[in-house]
Design a protein around this nucleic acid. Structure first.
Length: 811
DNA sequence: CCAGTTTTGGTTTTT
DNA sequence: CCAAAACTGG
């Protein structure tokens, strides 16, 4: 631990403290294998840790930080550690806390790239032409703003949708391309060459609005550093150690950002440590450059590269299958995972007739595992595309299997949350035009396009915010009386709220705003299936504000956070999610359906990115398999409904890339009992049934599905989309009753042949024929038949369904 | 301005 | 086929 020359001689006290640190360090270092230990202890100079799946990546990262702290090489504030997600950042903070004990009060510079960017930008906002209170636009604001600019240019919005332009701008920003740097060819691709001009207009407009988008959080910092060497030097000197998680996911902007901070300085080693796995790079399509990790040692000459190949997660066969598959990729650094653990079960390969049978098979296997004592929480279904989820949801509802969809729309993206936030933004920052526009006529106040247009013109002409324009204009005769009055009372309301900003606790203020604005009422009157959930989410939003000191702090947080999960860990439920959102997670049993050409690898990935696309798809497959600790089960169907029509499909090439010796061809569970659909091995099931039926509804799969549907009598638990459960407490709790039921089922319910033998209570239902009822998933409907606790309900939107009594309530 | 209807398009997702 | 967005008529 020789100090670099530039360091002053440590004092005696410091040396004694360091010695204590060293002693404590031995405790945590002892838990590491030699490679991990090397990754932790190689402190000076650039280090790249290639951490295969399940090799203890996070442990290395956190221990390394703990080690730096414990050995007193740096104070917490002198370490910059960046992650991609808030979740990862949170997890790291927690684990460092555990390692170091209470000694460290947090790490101020451990966070996402974006959060770190904001922090720096707020401090130096003026240097890049912003005011410190700048607001952060999300995708939706961004699109609305672009739409205005597109309209201003008189461009046909049908042909050139704003979201396409938003995508293009995003892409440019990912690559750190400012408007002047966009390659001519690309800029011309949008709206006859107006793309770049619009990009520029957009940036100008952002400055006027004192706003930035997500991309700017990186780009503006880069600009800040480049144009202000003193600021850059300040941060370079401050951060003695840089750590980067998931380096394979960095885009060009993030790479440049890091490189500036990590620049070589006189007499000081580049203490940058990047951790990642090129084989798990699955975000190329949103700008990640695998190349960053592939050429790390060129960017940082003299880098130490450490491979973590000892896997602690999966059994031998699973690891072998995954390794063999990924070995088909050419553009990789190459790692060979191994384990000392047992071989375990071979991954299975199951050929099914169609997606319906796929869902049924998976359901049966899950129930079988459950009977063997496996927790549903330890099982996951990982799909390539979210449309695949539906079939599983339907099936699980039918058999009453609790499930949980991970991913879905994120909490903050929900309409009601965004509306509520817009109100709060207007209160906190009256100049926030985009927020104002959003809520000016929500709930309906009779302030339509015409009024808004007038407001816009006025605001634009005087160069003032919309709110200000409105304030002036309500005193004139420019509006029709109706609009004028509506606007007047809205402004008065905002004045009232703003006056209470400093006196009223922000939580109460939020409630007041939502009530007085009529927003809550709007949803109370709404009778659609979602309304109840939306109100629940609004309550949750207010509740979640508790943790923040004031409104501004809360709004800052919310702009950067997309917590997709509050996760009802208490419920035992199977997880359904995309392969992408499964990265970083692990389960005992993993089900991998839909391994068919066109779907996985996805056709579009192949068409748009060719070989690189194929390799990324293969990495996805690798990520999927390596999520499994003990069981990995792969499925492919011979027929799948794509855009409504049945198409026959070919097994994925990835299936054939699995090593024969490490997989088992499933002999079909044979429990289906329906016409003995022999699910033999490869293709067999396709062979004996295809041909006779061309497509459409004549297929046996479809007919059987119909038969099965009418048999399905048990209604599954509604285990809400996780998105609605963000911010801690669950959606289900809010509506009462469901949690209890859930436990009842997981304890006692038995299934035979996939059909839930609903332990019919025999008691007549609370609801009788003709009653109006409400169901969380299907919405409102009318009971058309009742048999004990089983009801047949004609839902207004979802059609006729058989549901268990306990899942509906009187409407 | 709203409700009901037609049209359209339908990988992956974080900040 | 099915959900969301874009239209159209009251």
């Amino acid at each position: 631990m020789a100090d670099p020359v530039t360091h002053r001689q440590p004092s005696l006290a410091e040396r004694a403290m360091a010695a204590r640190g060293e002693a404590a360090a031995i405790g945590y270092l002892a838990n590491l294998n030699p490679e991990q230990r090397a990754a932790v202890e190689t402190i000076d100079g650039p280090v790249l840790v290639l951490a295969g799946a399940g090799t203890g990546k996070t442990r290395v990262l956190t221990t390394r930080i703990a080690h730096i702290l414990a050995s007193r090489r740096a104070f917490p504030g002198e370490i910059l550690a960046v992650t991609f997600t808030n979740k990862a950042a949170r997890e790291m903070k927690e684990r460092i806390g555990h390692l170091v004990g209470e000694a460290v009060e947090g790490m101020p510079w451990l966070g996402t790239f974006h959060a770190t960017g904001v922090k720096m930008l707020r401090r130096h906002a003026e240097l890049v032409g912003l005011k410190p209170g700048f607001s952060i636009l999300d995708t939706d604001d961004q699109i609305r703003l672009l739409r205005q600019l597109i309209q201003a240019e008189n461009i046909d919005e049908k042909r050139w949708p704003a979201r396409v332009l938003a995508g293009a701008i995003d892409g440019w920003k990912n690559r750190a391309l400012t408007p002047d740097k966009v390659p001519a060819g690309e800029g011309g691709a949008y709206a006859n060459g107006l793309g770049v001009k619009l990009y520029k207009d957009y940036q100008d407009r952002l400055k006027v609005l004192n706003a930035v988008d997500f991309g700017d959080l990186l780009l503006e910092v880069i600009r800040l550093f480049r144009e202000n060497p003193d600021v850059l030097a300040h941060y370079q000197q401050r951060f003695k150690f840089l750590l980067v998680d998931e380096y394979q996911d960095t885009n060009v902007a993030q790479y440049l950002w890091l490189r500036l901070l990590a620049q070589r300085q006189e007499g000081r080693p580049q203490n940058i440590c990047c951790v990642g796995d090129d084989d798990q790079s699955i975000y190329g399509w949103r700008g990640a450059e695998v190349d960053n990790i592939l050429r790390f040692d060129k960017d940082f000459p003299g880098a130490t590269v450490i491979r973590l190949e000892r896997n602690y997660r999966s059994t031998g066969h699973i690891l072998a299958a995954a390794s063999h598959l990924i070995a088909h990729n050419e553009g990789r650094l190459g790692k060979t995972l191994f384990t000392d653990g047992e071989d375990g079960e071979r991954p299975t390969l199951t050929s099914v007739w169609d997606s319906e049978e796929e869902a049924r098979s998976v359901g049966e296997e899950i129930e079988q595992l459950q009977r063997q004592g496996h927790a549903l929480n330890e099982m996951a279904i990982l799909v390539r595309a979210s449309f695949q989820m539906r079939e599983f949801e339907d099936r699980f509802i039918t058999i009453g299997l609790p499930y949980r969809v991970i991913g879905g729309p994120r909490f903050y993206e929900r309409l009601e949350i965004r509306d509520a936030l817009a109100y709060l933004r207007c209160v906190a920052q009256p100049a926030d035009d985009l927020a104002f526009e959003r809520i000016v006529n929500t709930p309906k106040r009779g302030l339509g396009d015409a009024t808004l247009q007038l407001l816009h013109d006025h605001a634009r002409a005087r160069n003032v915010p919309l709110m200000q324009a409105a304030r002036v204009m309500v005193e004139t005769e420019e509006f029709k009386p109706k609009a004028r009055n509506a606007l007047k009372s809205l402004i008065d309301a905002f004045d009232g709220w703003a006056a209470k900003l400093d006196t009223l606790p922000h939580q109460e203020l939020a409630e007041l705003v939502l009530d007085e604005s009529g927003y809550t009422e709007m949803w109370q009157k709404d009778r659609t299936a979602e309304a109840a959930g939306r109100l629940e989410n609004l309550k949750e939003l207010v509740r979640s504000m508790e943790e923040f000191e004031n409104l501004a702090g809360f709004l800052e947080h919310i702009a950067l956070v997309t917590d997709a999960r509050g996760e009802g860990e208490s419920d035992d439920a199977v997880s359904i999610m995309t392969l992408h959102s499964a990265k970083g997670l692990e389960f005992d049993s993993v089900f991998l359906p839909g391994w068919e050409e066109g779907l996985f690898p996805h056709q579009r990935a192949l068409d748009e990115s060719g070989r690189a696309g194929l390799e990324e798809e293969r990495r996805l497959a690798y990520v999927g398999i390596t999520r499994a600790r003990r069981n990995a089960r792969i499925y492919f169907a011979g027929n799948r409904r794509i855009h409504g029509l049945w198409q026959s499909t070919v097994p994925s090439r990835f299936v054939n890339e699995l090593p024969e010796g490490h997989v088992t061809i499933a002999e079909g569970l044979g429990t289906s009992g329906y016409g003995g659909m022999g699910r033999g091995g490869f293709g067999e099931s396709r062979f004996d049934k295809a041909g006779a039926f061309s497509s459409t509804y004549a297929t046996p799969g479809w007919q059987r599905a119909q038969a099965q549907k009418s048999l399905a009598d048990a209604q599954g638990r509604f285990t809400g989309r996780s998105g609605s459960q963000a911010f801690g407490s669950t959606f289900a709790e809010g509506r009462g009753g469901f949690q209890g039921r859930l436990t009842e089922r997981s304890g006692g319910g038995r299934t035979i042949d996939g059909e839930l033998v609903a332990k019919s209570t025999g008691e007549p239902s609370r609801h009788k024929v003709g009653d109006r009822v409400f169901h969380l998933k299907f919405g409102y409907g009318e009971v058309v038949a009742a048999d004990g606790n089983k009801l047949t309900v004609q839902f207004d939107k979802a059609g006729e369904k058989k549901v268990v009594d306990s899942f509906v309530e009187a409407a």
